[in-house]
Design a protein around this nucleic acid. Sequence first.
DNA 1: GCCTGGATTATC
DNA 2: ATAATCCAGGCA
Length: 208
Amino acid sequence: MRLPTSFYRRDATTVARALIGCVLVNGARAGIIVETEAYHGPEDLASHARFGRGDGTARTSVMFGPGGISYVYLCYGIHEMFNIVTGEAGDGQAVLIRAIAPHLGLPDDPAIGRGPGKVTTALAIDRRLDRKNLARGPLFVAPGPEPAPPITSGPRIGVAYAGAWAGRPFRFWWADHPSVSRGAAAPSASPAPSLAPSRTTVSTRRKR
DNA sequence: GCCTGGATTATC
DNA sequence: ATAATCCAGGCA
């Protein structure tokens, strides 16, 4: 059973949240989606859609098509990123799959799909699977088992350049799940920093 | 054409 | 902290 096209033809934020707990399948391999990010249309300064639809030649033109199609691109020259186009034709939206937990055909290691580059490596997804219809073919998403998992949201990762859009809570993850790429809830597990001896180097600068 | 900078990850 | 490594956008 796979999710129907209608599932994807909704707002990116709605789809990003709804995908948590679903099963991402590529052939004989599958993982449970535990972390996603919503990217909106041209108004979203963090989105690849921010430069407009680019008349057919642009890598991102697929984002302006109807929901339910894959969008796979190369980031930093090294990592393949897997996205699913959402909304209606013309919207320019997509959801990035940032982390999966191993399910079928994968080593039972919570780190195997922890991070967007790891997701594509684990499931053997690359740019040959760009622009594929998830309603048919070996690449698709199936509904997850009930009950729905606990979901938390927060700012997207690595988009500090996006001005006001950088801080919006468009990242969703399965609360406290070990395969989430960065500090899920970390409820009160914090600090108590006081007893630490003075550090000699002051490298407190945080880039992203 | 040339330059810049990423929706990252592993390692120095 | 930074190398690895490729492509799109911006400008000349």
